[in-house]
Each structure stands twice: as structure tokens, then as C-alpha cells.
């Protein structure tokens, strides 16, 4: 019975479309994590940056009646929160994991606190379609059977994410800037003595992770949901974190991991006819995360100086 339903569900384009959409959503903060950790700053605050981005995106879009400004607002909000993380961990050399947790809790508290104040206790009602990120079908490509709906009838941000993955891979592994980022994450002292500005590189990378996570927040609130709810990220920033590790700190690796997790998320609502508890099924992506981390990945090699604050005149 279960396997029959599963087999049937697995060949529907509807499932794969949803899976890839989830994957794209997860991938943005995962890429944020990749760029931050490649530069040597542990960042587990994508959850909080995403949430604040989702919130800011909706508030700005509603206030200005402009979807683009909404997206921009989301990115800036995420970037500002990341800047806090950067200052705390780069300048003050605080524990980066603790800083990340603090930011996640602060973001949750802040959005819960601001939402009723800014909406006079009403909360946000569903957004008007003009304020939502549209679905975009890519011309004739969209009509290819199965592949069309899966790949070419997606939200507009989906295509942006695909572009960002490729660009980030190119940036990290094919450019001089990428060489410097990797050097700083592996051996900051070596980079410093070679004339690379370690702090600047780390600042830029951490803030970029905030921009990407904020964009993911906009994708979630302005794109997929069309609304802002309290704690609407619900741990997806953490799944993105797992995807980053699962993907061995590479953009394409993270993309692969996000597709696996996206499939898990897309599957759980579609298997409810099988008689298995919906609550149990909704834990599927998280279980998958654990399995992936323990079984498939084992010890991944993080950048050597990941999480280690850099003190120039040590000794």
C-alpha cells in the first residue's frame, strides 16, 4: 500500500516541481553558509536571517506597494543581521556558534514583537497577488512534458537561485577573489602575510551570507507563502546548514543536498493517503537530515580555520 502510493507519487511532475522549489528555497541560505564558512566564519544564523528577511520583505512590500523594494528590504535586513554576526565574531572574536544561536533567538523574538505593533495587532493578511513574486513560465520550454513544469514553470526566484549557484561556484573556484576567500578560510595567517586583508574578506563573506538568507526569506514570504506568519521559517535555516555540510561546503554539493531535502519536504504531504500519521511524515525531512549527516557524509572536511577567530599579532 505505502510503496504503491510512493511509486505513484514519485512519477508526478507536481511532486518534482514542489521538490525543486523547496530545494531552491533551502539552497539560498545553504549557499550563504558556504560562502561564510569558506572564509572561516561559522554561521548557523541563516535561520534568523531568513526569518527577518521574510518579515522585512512583507512589511516593505506592503508599505511601498513595490515588490522589488520588498525583496531589497528582505536582503538588507538579512545583511544587517549578518553584520552583527560579523562584528561579534570577527572584531570581538566571540564564540561563533553562540553568536549564531543568539541571532536566531533574537530574530524570532524581534519579529514576534514587531508584528503586532506594526499591524495594530491584526497580523498580516494574505498578500495581494501584485505584491507576490510571480511564477514565470519560460516560453516554449515550459511545454516540454514532465521537464517543462518541473524546471521551467517555477517561481521567478527559482531561476535566480540557479544563476546564483553557478556564479558562486565560479567565484569560489575560478577567480582571484575566490582564491583569497578559500585561503582566508584555510590559513588566515598565510593569507595575511601574503597581503590579503583577512578581516575585510571575512566581513564581505558573512554579510553576503546574510544577503542570500534574506533573499530566501523573501522567497518564502513574498513568493511561496504570500503571507508572513510567526516563526514561518520553522527550522529551514538549520536544514540549509545541514545541506551545506552534506554538500561538503561547495555550491553544487549543497545544491544536490538541497534537492534531497526538498524531495523529503515535498513528499511528506503527498503520502498522507497511506494512513501514516501526518505528524510523523512531516518529520521526514529532518530525519533525512540526520541520516545524511551520520550515514552518507561522515566526517566532512570543513575549511581548516573555520570558526577560529583571527588575531593578527598572535604570539
Amino acid at each position: 500500500m505505502f510503496l504503491q502510493v510512493l511509486g505513484h507519487v514519485l512519477i508526478t511532475s507536481d511532486l518534482w516541481q514542489a521538490a525543486l522549489q523547496f530545494a531552491a528555497l533551502l539552497l539560498l541560505p545553504a549557499l550563504g553558509g558556504v560562502i561564510s564558512e569558506r572564509s572561516g566564519v561559522v554561521n548557523i544564523a541563516m535561520e534568523g536571517m531568513m526569518l527577518i528577511g521574510a518579515y522585512a520583505g512583507v512589511m516593505v512590500a506592503v508599505a511601498t506597494h513595490n515588490i522589488l523594494l520588498g525583496v531589497l528590504g528582505a536582503m538588507i535586513a538579512g545583511g544587517l543581521l549578518a553584520l552583527v554576526h560579523a562584528i561579534v565574531s570577527i572584531n570581538f572574536m566571540a564564540n561563533q556558534t553562540v553568536s549564531g544561536i543568539a541571532i536566531n533567538i533574537a530574530a524570532l523574538g524581534l519579529t514576534n514583537f514587531l508584528l503586532p505593533i506594526q499591524t495594530n495587532g491584526q497580523g498580516i493578511t494574505a498578500l495581494d497577488s501584485s505584491l507576490r513574486l510571480p511564477q514565470a513560465a519560460l516560453g516554449p520550454l515550459a511545454h516540454i512534458p514532465f521537464i517543462g513544469p518541473v524546471l521551467f514553470q517555477q517561481n521567478i526566484l527559482f531561476y535566480v537561485v540557479v544563476l546564483i549557484v553557478i556564479l558562486l561556484h565560479f567565484l569560489l573556484f575560478r577567480t582571484n577573489i575566490g582564491l583569497r576567500i578559500r585561503a582566508v578560510g584555510e590559513h588566515p595567517q598565510a593569507a595575511d602575510t601574503a597581503g590579503v586583508n583577512v578581516r575585510l574578506v571575512r566581513y564581505l563573506c558573512v554579510v553576503s551570507s546574510g544577503l542570500l538568507s534574506g533573499l530566501a526569506g523573501a522567497f518564502l514570504s513574498l513568493g511561496i507563502a504570500g503571507i508572513f506568519n510567526q516563526d514561518m521559517t520553522a527550522g529551514q535555516g538549520y536544514i540549509a546548514l545541514a545541506a551545506m555540510i552534506f554538500g561538503k561546503y561547495t555550491p553544487f554539493g549543497a545544491a544536490g543536498a538541497c534537492i534531497v531535502f526538498g524531495l523529503g519536504e515535498a513528499l511528506s504531504p503527498r503520502l498522507q493517503d497511506t494512513g501514516i500519521s501526518a505528524n510523523l511524515l512531516s518529520t521526514l525531512p529532518y530525519l533525512l537530515t540526520l541520516v545524511a549527516l551520520v550515514g552518507l557524509v561522515g566526517r566532512t572536511m570543513a575549511p581548516a580555520a573555520d570558526g577560529v577567530p583571527y588575531e593578527p599579532a598572535a604570539e
Binding site: 577567480t175 582571484n176 577573489i177 582564491l179 583569497r180 585561503a183 598565510a190 593569507a191 601574503a194 597581503g195 590579503v196
Partner: peptide, 10 residues
Amino acid sequence: LGNEPGGLVS
């Protein structure tokens, strides 16, 4: 590293 041919934005 730090002195790459082509300059930083390359």
C-alpha cells in the same frame, strides 16, 4: 595569492 595575475577582479 594576494598578488594574482590579472588583479583582484579577474
